[in-house]
């Protein structure tokens, strides 16, 4: 197990104006799950269920209220600032919105080489080598080196998401968090990105922590899945098992609401209805 999350709870203090007393909001409640090396683990849940909060905890952008997060056997909370920085080169993240997650004032070259600059001490690349690696990464994600000096707004959504993936891969991470990497993209482009992710996993032996609310995508990408509802894990297990024989009501509800692109399986039409 490369990542173990043990009984993690996260409370937020919510203030309702200057006079009211602050209350607590529990975004995650006693969450436990573990992700094996080289697998694709899916996390599914509706908006506001706490998915992004969990990734922020894994990345140590926020502190847990209680519980532990272990990466490769070490408790993240116990790490010194130096070790934490080192760890950040092993865990990387690709964000949901390819439009907002790239700095509009930086060129593609600067965006992708920035993580290598930050982790200069572990990677030890000079400027020339960094540029070479940026070109290499751009080719890896199917963009080509000619895009080196363009700005993010000059790219389409799918291309931007590839830039985001290239940036995440720049420091040779083992563990990639994908926070709804395709929800802002067209299905055609989503297919391209999903295929790219599959190729990369095979080539680089990555572990994926894949967040989505699209059950079709999760089923296609993940080996194991956890369903999260209002901050609590309601079911987890092998993907096929959950899709074929869901145990919780919530899983059944989600599966029944998932719109399948097959006109014959529509809840609105009796199957016997004729065409037209």
């Amino acid at each position: 197990m490369i990542l173990r999350i043990e009984n993690v709870t996260k409370d937020f203090k919510v203030s309702h104006g200057p006079l009211a007393r602050a209350t607590h909001f529990t975004a995650l409640k006693d969450v436990s799950l573990s992700v094996g090396k080289g697998e694709s683990f899916g996390l599914v849940g509706e908006s506001g269920s706490g998915k992004t909060t969990l990734t922020r905890l894994i990345l140590q952008l926020d502190r847990v209220s209680s519980g532990r997060i272990l990466f490769d056997g070490t408790d993240l909370a116990s790490l010194s600032a130096r070790d934490l920085r080192h760890l950040r080169s092993r865990i990387q993240i690709v964000f949901q919105d390819p439009y907002a997650s790239l700095n509009p004032r930086m060129t593609v070259h600067d965006i992708i080489s920035e993580p290598m600059e930050i982790h200069q001490d572990t990677l030890g690349l000079n400027a020339r080598q960094r540029t070479d690696r940026v070109v290499e990464l751009l080719e890896l994600v199917g963009l080509g080196g000619q895009h080196l000096f363009r700005f993010p707004h000059e790219f389409s959504g799918g291309q931007r998401q590839r830039i985001g993936i290239a940036r995440a891969l720049a420091v040779r991470p083992e563990f990639l968090i994908l926070d709804e990497p395709t929800s802002a993209l067209d299905v055609s482009v989503q297919a391209q990105v999903l295929n790219l992710l599959h190729e990369l996993q095979a080539k680089l032996g990555l572990t994926y922590f894949f967040i989505s609310h699209d059950l079709g995508v999760i089923r296609y990408v993940c080996d194991r899945v956890a369903l999260i509802y209002r901050g609590e894990i309601v079911e987890q297990g092998e993907t096929e098992r959950i899709f074929e024989a869901p145990e919780s009501d919530y899983a059944r509800l989600l599966l029944s609401a998932m719109p399948e692109p097959d006109p014959d399986r529509s809840p609105f039409r009796p199957p016997a209805a004729s065409a037209g």
């Binding site: 990345l59 952008l61 934490l84 920085r85 950040r88 080169s89 990387q92 993240i93 964000f95 919105d97 907002a100 997650s101 790239l102 700095n103 509009p104 920035e114 993580p115 930050i118 982790h119 985001g164 940036r167 420091v171």
Partner: peptide, 14 residues
């Protein structure tokens, strides 16, 4: 709070 700043923090930027 912008995403790209969060992204930089996640990368370990100071």
């Amino acid at each position: 709070e912008e995403m790209f700043v969060q992204a930089a923090r996640a990368l370990g930027a100071g």
